[in-house]
């Protein structure tokens, strides 16, 4: 996977899936339409302000709440390149892997990053470099099983391999 380089939009703790994509829009599965409302209830101007390839950096428990897979999908279709958080809520973490949203769990990236900083992330090593501040942070490596899902091209690819093995 190529390195991800982008500008930071910073959020706090417990960013829930209702502010990532409000429930009132969830009767649609037109992801590009949903992307227009990405982060709307925490920052109504987010989609207008951000540029393709930007990076969300948040503190603990990012994506808590609902199991709506449209939360990582709205982020993906808004063209956010990656989400870095101190920690992720479990369903969001799982959904992000399944729909191929690059996520990175880092203990110290949030504290060491300001809004507008430029980050460069190397997905192969998990290194997060703050280009603006000249500092680097580590992110937790994905469990081997999760890497297998990723290398099968997401969960659908994994399922196909698994079905083939069953037959």
């Amino acid at each position: 996977m190529d390195k991800i380089r982008g500008r930071v939009w910073k959020f706090g703790k417990n960013v829930d899936t209702d502010v990532i994509i409000p429930g009132r829009y969830c009767n649609s599965i037109d992801y590009d339409e949903l992307a227009k409302h990405c982060m709307e209830d925490i920052d109504p101007d987010f989609v207008r302000k951000m540029s393709s390839g930007d990076i969300i950096v948040a503190d603990t428990n990012f994506g808590c709440g609902s199991s709506r897979e449209v939360a990582p999908l709205a982020i993906k279709h808004a063209k956010v390149a990656a989400v870095v958080a101190t920690s992720f809520a479990r369903i969001f973490y799982r959904n992000s892997i399944n729909v191929a949203v690059p996520i990175f769990e880092s203990e110290d990236a949030w504290a060491g990053t300001d809004e507008g900083d430029e980050l460069e992330i190397d997905p192969s090593t998990g290194e997060i470099r703050n280009v603006t501040k000249g500092r680097s942070f580590n992110s937790a490596p994905f469990p081997e099983f999760v890497q297998q899902i990723m290398s099968s091209g997401g969960l659908v690819g994994y399922a196909e391999a698994r079905l083939a093995a069953q037959q």
């Binding site: 199991s67 709506r68 897979e69 369903i91 799982r94 959904n95 399944n98 729909v99 997401g154 969960l155 659908v156 994994y158 399922a159 698994r162 079905l163 069953q166």
Partner: peptide, 12 residues
């Protein structure tokens, strides 16, 4: 779980 997990669990 999310929707893709539901899909795969329905199959497997």
């Amino acid at each position: 779980i999310g929707a893709t997990d539901v899909a795969v669990t329905m199959a497997l």
